[in-house]
Design a protein around this nucleic acid. Structure first.
Length: 826
RNA sequence: GCGAAAGUGGCGGAACUGGCAGACGCGCUGGACUUAGAAUCCAGUGCCCUUACGGGUGUAGGGGUUCAAAUCCCCUCUUUCGCACCA
């Protein structure tokens, strides 16, 4: 018979809610533990990925509660953004209606699973009470000069007259109308995250972050140390700054390449005879996919501008080209080209017959223009470089930089691959940017007291081609906060990453209507002790949130440097080797599985099938296995309940007991140790659950009878009493039920975690593995105190050893204490 | 393309700091129970040779270091994630 999971789960969910077990009380003086899972986009359905993610978090939360912490586990919704807007268009409705409907559904599903959230703290980023503070933070950043406007390129569909996200413009084709996407230059708002680049590179304040996330962030920020050098233009009173990490090669610079987006091109082409070709070329390059364009394998192409620059170190006239392999986003959008010592420049120079000059020789001095098949990019000895000849190139980097600085023609500098963060979106469903444009006063930020700038509801979604806000006259037309004259509102809304960059702080004080959160309350809860979410957020979300934290610290709202002390990146749920998605038709509905087997089974399966940071492959049969396990535990307790309740709880630890009983007690204490360590240290719930299963097998194998002496009854009782305790993080409803069946008062979460006795884990006998030439041939069991000499003697007494060493000479014998013996024979 | 990871039976996975490969679960095979099925329980289960005893072989592929390699090093292949307007 199946255990009555439905009754059990309903009953305990109601109990937890009634007793407010997961609602945090600020008066509670126990140490805090803030556990946060990345909040979901409310699509109206939870998929298995969510269940997996939140089951991991809930297990940690419950474990920490039992360990005596005051656990804060909140939940909310990342509700703004393109998918929500598109969902509404598809259903011919309004995002506000559909989003709140979907939130309702999502909340219901969460509640049906019994996750331990403090629902009083629920937030949705599309609530006015939330995005009010996005605007407030925006203004604070604006006041600190961290926000500015600049023109940049966006994907633009000429037919739909709308800006497209990268995913809507795959392969340069509009997802709706299949027109060719072009790059359009528009003015957008940017956040100077680069001001914090150096501090973001400092990962030393984390307790436990996956090394790979740290590496990815470091590479994403991409610090490089080099020199800015100015190249004067011939016949023009203008200079082109270039950034180079190899100033030592500057005497070998024979031409220069600008990015197609470089602002100087407009000036240069004026006097050029081939103006039309340049325009055509630039347009073509700008509209190419950047990943493809800058790929090493893509053929380097360029066009001569007709203008020349002067190499400041030797006065040489060098041609200025425009090329596809230079991007505007990095450095200054211009590079000095040294074909002999940079592979990209080398290929470009070969193609267009530009001069190549060797200025760094290898140690053998064997480089010649004729034998060069590729650029020589290593260090070496300077040559063709006037006063720097024969110097080591590493030293020349220093000397030439110094020389340029003295001549006021350059400066040592540090550049980052990290770009400033473009937060403008030409879309409706997001936080309005609190700015007005006044003819008299220019760009005017809305005063704090006048916040929030409410997102108007009266819009036609999906009808108008451009940003729907442009058509809402009562929104756009306003008065200037400075001079009171008529003015226009900004119609761009914010990137949703802005919303999710500080939500962890709002959860600490979600109802505050004076501030985004109270300083003292935030200081109490932050940083988040454990953050859990997908690896896909390694660079963007996690860097943005770290940046926000540092900014809010700098304006005095936080007293910590980092938002998340520990990070766990969990894997996704796959089926048939692929991520579950509707288009692939491999979605498993959580609701169906929960109705059939219960939430404890689904949690158990998710946690058992693989370690948390790995993907979980969904398997219908595997779920049945988890269900079977919980049934076996329930049946065991159900059957033995009366026997156990009539057995003593404590026993004499020193009493002589049978080897079988000793084994059972060993299993009990070993399992507690294993589950505790796996849960606490590495969150390896898969091995923790495996250990509980193993213990169940051990207990089931132990035969009992009514006449068993007291000590034996007590040890047997102990072996069963640990099940509800150890299962409480993974199968919380069943655990509560079993705890009560065994005569305890609920809730088990308030009963404390369980400890083991190291005394019962001591083994007196040790099994040594005997290897001959590294191959397992025999085993010997010896007392734990046996000396090395004795072990060696026992090894040679072993018939197997004699068999395999017969007629051979013993070369060596290696004894690894408490493990093995390896005999090398020949 | 660049950056970051991963690869172990039929499947999910386990293996401390280099020391018995395959814990635990699924599946499969055989048995018990049953009118029958489902469920449950018991036994077996990497592959190859062998009736057995036993032996060989095996952690994506190739090479190396070591008494000893899934684990360390080099090369190759495959898969996954990210690449700045998906969140």
């Amino acid at each position: 018979m199946e255990y009555p999971f439905q009754n059990i789960e309903n009953r305990w969910r109601k109990y937890w809610e009634r007793e407010k077990l997961f609602y945090v009380n600020m008066e509670d003086t126990r140490p805090k533990f803030y556990l946060l899972s990345m909040f979901p986009y409310p699509s109206g359905e939870l998929h298995m990925g969510h269940i997996s993610n939140y089951s991991i978090a809930d297990a940690v939360a419950r474990f920490k509660m039992m360990k005596g912490f005051k656990v804060l586990q909140p939940m909310g919704y990342d509700a703004f953004g393109m998918p929500a807007e598109n969902f509404a268009i598809k259903h011919n409705s309004h995002p506000k209606i559909t989003t709140y409907q979907n939130i309702e559904k999502t909340r219901k599903l969460f509640k049906s699973i019994g996750f331990g959230y403090d629902w009083d703290r629920e937030i949705a980023t599309c609530d006015e009470e939330y995005y009010h503070w996005n605007q407030w933070i925006f203004l604070k950043m604006y006041a600190q000069n961290l926000i500015y406007k600049k023109s940049s390129f966006v994907n633009w569909c000429p037919k739909c007259e709308t800006v497209l996200a990268n995913e809507q413009a795959e392969n340069g084709i509009c997802w709706r109308c299949e027109s060719k996407v072009v790059q359009k230059e528009i003015e957008q708002w940017f956040v100077k995250i680069t001001n914090y680049a150096e501090e973001l590179l400092d990962h030393s304040k984390f307790d436990n972050w996956p090394e790979r996330v740290i590496t990815m962030q470091k590479n994403w920020i991409g610090k490089s140390i080099g020199t800015d050098i100015n190249f004067p233009l011939e016949n023009m009173n203008e200079k082109i700054p270039v950034f180079t990490t190899r100033p030592d090669t500057i005497f070998g610079c024979t031409y220069m390449v600008l990015a197609a987006e470089h602002p100087l091109i407009k000036k240069l082409k004026k006097d050029s005879p081939n103006k039309k070709e340049i325009d055509k070329f630039v347009e073509k390059i700008i509209n190419e996919d950047k990943i493809v364009r800058t790929s090493e394998e893509t053929e380097k192409v360029g066009i001569f501008t007709g203008s020349y620059a002067i190499n400041p170190v030797n006065g040489e006239k060098i041609p200025i080209w425009i090329g596809n392999y230079v991007v505007m986003e990095y450095g200054s959008g211009a590079v000095m080209c040294v074909p002999a010592h940079d592979q990209r420049d080398f290929e470009f120079a070969k193609k267009y017959n530009l001069p190549v000059r060797i200025v760094i020789q290898n140690l053998e001095k064997s480089l010649t223009l004729k034998n060069m098949q590729s650029a020589y990019v290593d260090d070496g000895i300077m040559t063709n470089s006037q006063q720097f000849d024969d110097m080591k190139s590493e030293k020349a980097i220093e000397k030439i930089s110094e020389w340029m600085e003295n001549k006021k023609n350059g400066k040592r500098s540090v550049k980052y691959r990290l770009k400033d963060w473009g937060i403008s979106r030409q879309r409706y469903w997001g936080t309005p940017i609190p700015i007005v444009y006044c003819e008299k006063c220019g760009i005017v930020p809305i005063p704090e007291e006048q916040l929030p700038v409410t997102l108007p509801e009266n819009v036609q979604i999906g009808r108008s081609k451009q940003n729907p806000l442009l058509a809402v006259e009562e929104f756009v037309n306003t008065t200037c906060p400075k001079c009171g004259n008529a003015a226009k509102r900004e119609t761009d809304t914010m990137d949703t990453f802005f919303d999710s960059s500080w939500y962890y702080a709002r959860f600490c004080d979600p109802k505050n209507d004076k501030m985004p959160f109270d300083k003292k309350i935030a200081a109490h809860w932050l940083p988040v002790d454990q953050y859990i979410g997908g690896i896909e957020h390694a660079c963007m979300h996690l860097l943005y949130a770290r940046f926000f934290h540092k900014f809010l610290r700098d304006i005095g709202l936080f007293n910590s440097d980092e938002p998340f002390t520990n990070l766990l990146t969990q894997g996704m749920v796959t089926k048939d080797g692929a991520k579950m998605s509707k288009s692939k038709g491999n979605v498993v509905e959580p609701k169906y599985i929960i109705d059939r087997y219960g939430s404890d089974t689904v949690r158990g399966f998710m946690l058992f099938s693989s370690p948390p940071e790995k993907d979980v492959e969904w398997n219908d049969e595997g779920v049945k296995g988890a269900f079977r396990f919980l049934n076996r535990v329930w049946n065991l307790v159900q059957k033995k309940k009366d026997f156990l309740l009539n057995s003593p709880k404590i026993y004499d630890e020193n009493a002589e007991i049978s080897p079988e009983l000793k084994k059972l007690r060993y299993s009990t204490h070993y399992t507690i140790k294993k589950v505790t360590a796996d849960t606490e240290k590495t969150m390896q719930f898969n091995t923790a659950i495996a250990a509980i299963m193993e213990h169940l097998n051990n207990v089931s194998a132990y035969k009992i009878n009514e006449k068993m002496p007291k000590t034996e009854r007590a040890i047997y009782r102990e072996s069963i009493e640990i099940f509800p305790k150890l299962l409480a993080p993974f199968a919380p409803h069943l655990a509560e039920e079993l705890w009560e069946m065994l005569g305890h008062k609920p809730s088990i979460l308030e009963s404390g975690w369980i400890s083991f006795n190291e005394k019962f884990l001591v083994k007196n006998e040790i099994t040594y593995v005997i290897q001959i030439n590294g191959k397992l041939r025999s085993k010997i069991i010896v007392d734990k105190n046996t000396s090395k000499d004795e072990i060696e003697k026992l090894t040679f007494d072993d018939p197997k050893v004699q068999k395999y060493s017969a007629g051979k000479s013993i070369k060596k014998i290696i004894i690894v204490p408490k493990k093995l013996v390896n005999v090398v024979v020949k």
